Simulated scan of single mutants.
Amino acid sequence: MDLDQALNELFKLLKIPVLACIFFILKNIKPVSFFSANVVEQRLFSKEQLFGFKVIKHILNTLFWMIVLYPATFYLRGIIPGPNDLFSYVIVILGGIIWGVIVIINEGSFSKIKSSRLCKGIFVTVFMVCLILFYTQLYNFFIDSLLSEEFNLKILGISMLVLFLFTLPIPFILIPISKFIKWSNEQSVYIEDEKKQKWYILYSINKETVLLGNKHEQRLCSKTMIKRKEELYNTPIEMVKTDN
């Protein structure tokens, strides 16, 4: 099976799931009203809508990295070692070790490293260099395979889809990095009860009620409670920046 046939088969397999994903997004999310909503309004959307928002955000982040990596690959084509080179294994191992150390530091270990700007800068810089080199090698390998085939728009479209799938893990990989350098624009919202305890608004259960918890993420909560939305009227709502 040549590259053209393989890509055609992949496109056939992905066609239905992609269409289903688009249908789900359009059905459960009103894109204009959702993305123009402030953080408080977003927290009053349903669980399904919040999930859809995260999916769209992940897709946009993936497309951003494709836009960065694709021209970078063409620029570095002459100096990037081949994917079977020992260099590839070195950057994967080194990047993996640094990523693992960052995850451990985020859990509370090695607090001196996290408090040092120099150490954080070195760790993040080396990791990002490894990540970019690994992906430019991957892109370069795929582009070389693509250029060996007769060019047409169909091949180009399917190849972009394949590169998109290769790039999908990057936003997930960068979550610990974002937490490590405290680079996040996400916010949580909460109210305080009579005892000054914070209750974070998690999501709407239905049109009348909303779920609150004692942590900004449901998986971290040890306590939750349900309130009617009308009980939040005239209640001061605080906003706080949170890590990813």
Score class of each variant (00 low, 15 high):
4 D>N: 12
5 Q>R: 14
6 A>H: 06
6 A>M: 07
13 L>W: 10
13 L>P: 00
14 L>V: 03
15 K>D: 10
24 F>T: 13
27 K>P: 02
28 N>H: 14
29 I>V: 15
30 K>A: 00
31 P>E: 05
35 F>Y: 15
40 V>C: 03
40 V>P: 02
40 V>Y: 12
47 K>S: 12
52 G>Q: 05
52 G>R: 08
53 F>C: 04
56 I>N: 01
56 I>Q: 04
58 H>N: 07
64 F>P: 01
71 P>A: 14
71 P>E: 07
74 F>G: 13
75 Y>G: 02
75 Y>K: 08
77 R>T: 13
78 G>P: 10
81 P>T: 07
81 P>V: 05
82 G>L: 11
82 G>R: 04
83 P>C: 11
83 P>H: 12
84 N>M: 12
85 D>Q: 07
88 S>A: 15
93 I>H: 04
95 G>R: 00
97 I>P: 05
100 G>Q: 09
100 G>A: 13
105 I>S: 06
107 E>L: 14
113 I>N: 10
113 I>E: 06
113 I>R: 14
114 K>E: 11
121 G>N: 05
121 G>K: 03
122 I>E: 07
122 I>S: 08
123 F>H: 05
126 V>N: 03
128 M>Q: 10
129 V>F: 14
130 C>M: 04
131 L>F: 09
139 Y>M: 01
142 F>S: 13
142 F>Q: 14
146 L>Y: 15
151 F>P: 01
156 L>F: 12
160 M>H: 09
161 L>Y: 15
163 L>W: 04
166 F>Q: 11
169 P>S: 04
169 P>A: 02
173 I>S: 05
173 I>L: 15
179 K>M: 10
180 F>Q: 01
191 I>S: 06
192 E>H: 01
198 K>W: 11
203 Y>M: 00
206 N>K: 03
215 K>L: 01
216 H>I: 05
219 R>F: 11
219 R>D: 00
223 K>S: 15
223 K>G: 07
227 K>S: 02
228 R>N: 09
233 Y>F: 08
233 Y>K: 15
234 N>C: 05
235 T>C: 08
236 P>N: 10
239 M>T: 13
239 M>P: 01
241 K>D: 13
242 T>A: 06
242 T>P: 00
